[in-house]
Design a protein around this nucleic acid. Structure first.
Lengths: 357, 357
DNA sequence: TTGTAGGCGTTATCAC
DNA sequence: GTGATAACGCCTACAA
């Protein structure tokens, strides 16, 4: 009785109720223009209830030509950031009756996962943490796509304000009197990281501080990456007094490196992360950071996608010019505010240090 | 062109190749007993390739009466443990051509999510972190189910050896000379926690140590739960010298409470977690713990489920006695070994302390 | 070797 | 009001 062999179908309900199968369908879908005799409707509903009839969503999808399922593509759960985005996304999707097909992809197999999703007729896809620009354009262009944390002229997107995050970081550190500062982050095509770096660098430049190349340290966007990078920073002949990291994972790695090297936070060095993941509150001192509303990013991404879906569904049932109508208007891009969260790793600059680079 | 309006179908391929649609199907499915003219096959394959034909998995599912999709039910990603289980599961599923439908459920909406999954005709379900016993049995009994970390007589399961974990914890702490020890964990129906506690308590009892009720502290299975619980432990008139926590999250909360209270780890107190999540290596000193192979749990759960699926698929195509044949044999239960990981939070007992309770 | 017929479980559009 | 009929895209017989 496993593979649906014993499932009750609409036909079964019809047989028992002594009506035709389409009539059952008519009643069950609550179609407004379904004018059926009250007593028939009553009987059918009762019987359906009794034998536990549940419509087969796959069959529905086939005829409706939409599956009411969306794909969510994330890079890895090692970063809790994406777990939270996913969580927010799943919640909203479930509430709206959509299923979430999960794809956790490395750089290599993104295309295959995407194809698998398309083969399953997902109505749309949410892409987080994987640069859309690295995907073959043809894989995407017949799909409804919403990007998370990567603004795009081509697709709709929902992003935390990464550039503002960088600016906030700079402002915070400057306000504490730091003048010799560093940045640790990946050399990547992921826009969020680039924007954080840019916002940071430009805000510094605005007050006359230019980051020399040894103060922009490249690291993988992970704990170990941050750890290694911070070791290099600490080895510098002329250490910075503050470090801003591209994300909390990197910052936590850096935090650990400081601990191991006996560098006191924040007295010897100020350290600032970005994202605000829970792990940041576990270390001592707790990590100062820039908050990105992770769950909210996922939730909004889904809402945006669903709105797109409704739009294309409506227009495609109307005229044939569905794609045109949608593509004509610029894709919506939501930017959610970033917020500084001061905890224990940032403090005033050591007096006398780094007044000029 | 969004909702599959413009998708190429097998019929389209057939038309262009000048053959019938079933012939295309025959060739594309690589059916062994499909004896088609090499040149026809060649032509069809070429054309399919050219116009980018991809079979509609939904339509396939409808006729095959199986969707090649599985559901994964997890409680929350706030605990990285489940994120990793999910990750392992997704990987194996994807490799086998199965889709993963994600359901993140609270205690309340588990049933609805389960129904949603069934409506979508998932071939099976993996349940982690949600007590199967709390689910209405009827929701489960026409489904292929594999439980993670909760042994069951009714369903197949894959679990870390939680009882052994408790024993290892006890042995480790005893070996360090601790005699007055405490346990922090939730009062829950989740078997893994119960087993950890039981293994721990019984191993202690085996050497004549009985945990008084104030040394078994109840806490929510979260960081904040652990934090609150440890505060209570520290307030005890007669403090234990070592504490074992039901999982790492709790232990990390406890770790934090110690830091706040100025209790030095491991000199003043030994602290031991369970699971081995990455966060444990970020705190100072790093958390000693019992490793549970999280990703492996997810991976094996899927493998087990897939094996079940193949079995029921095979038998149901053979005789009609599918369910019987499967149910007759006890459901397979895999137990993966736990392993002690000694890091920085466990050390020898303070001399003179707690030689007797 | 290939085409034709039928069906998977729904929904939508008609005649009746 | 209700019941055929025709899709949706695919696959498995069986017939040609």
């Amino acid at each position: 009785m496993r593979f649906g062999k014993g499932r009750v179908t609409a036909a079964e309900v019809a047989r028992r109720a002594g009506v035709s199968q389409p009539t059952v369908s008519l009643i069950l879908t609550r179609n407004p223009k379904a004018r059926v005799a009250p007593e028939t409707r009553e009987r059918v509903l009762r019987i359906a209830e009794e034998i536990g009839y549940r419509p087969n969503r796959l069959a529905q999808a086939l005829v409706a030509r939409r599956s009411f399922a969306i794909g969510v593509i994330v890079p890895s759960f090692d970063n809790p950031f994406y777990a939270h985005v996913l969580s927010g996304a799943e919640k909203v999707a479930a509430e709206s009756g959509y299923a979430v097909l999960l794809a956790e992809v490395g750089a290599a197999d993104a295309v295959q996962h995407l194809q698998a999703l398309r083969d399953r007729q997902v109505d749309g896809v949410i892409i987080a943490g994987v640069a859309a620009s690295t995907l073959p354009p043809t894989e995407l262009d017949d799909l409804n796509v919403v990007l998370v944390n990567q603004p795009s002229t081509r697709f709709a997107s929902v992003a935390g304000d990464s550039e503002k995050a960088g600016q906030l970081a700079a402002a915070h550190l400057l306000g504490l009197g730091h003048r010799r500062v560093a940045f640790i982050g990946p050399a990547t095509s992921i826009p969020a990281f680039r924007l954080r770096e840019r916002g940071f660098v430009q805000a510094l430049r605005a007050v006359g501080i230019t980051l020399s190349s040894d103060l922009v340290v490249r690291a993988e966007a992970s704990i170990s990456g941050g750890l290694a990078a911070m070791r290099r920073v600490l080895a510098l002949r002329d250490r910075p007094t503050a470090v801003f990291c591209a994300n909390d994972l990197v910052a936590l790695g850096a935090h650990k490196a400081c601990g191991a090297a006996g560098v006191m936070l924040p007295t010897d060095l100020s350290l600032l992360g970005c994202d605000d993941i829970e792990m940041g509150t576990l270390v001592t001192p707790e990590l100062s950071t820039i908050l990105m509303p992770q769950r909210e990013l996922g939730a909004r991404a889904v809402r945006l996608l669903l709105r797109q879906l409704e739009a294309t569904a409506a227009s495609s049932s109307g005229a044939a010019s569905a794609a045109g109508a949608v593509a004509a208007t610029a894709p919506p891009a939501q930017v959610l505010p970033a917020r500084l969260v001061v905890r224990g790793t940032t403090g005033v600059a050591p007096s006398g240090a780094g007044s000029a680079s």
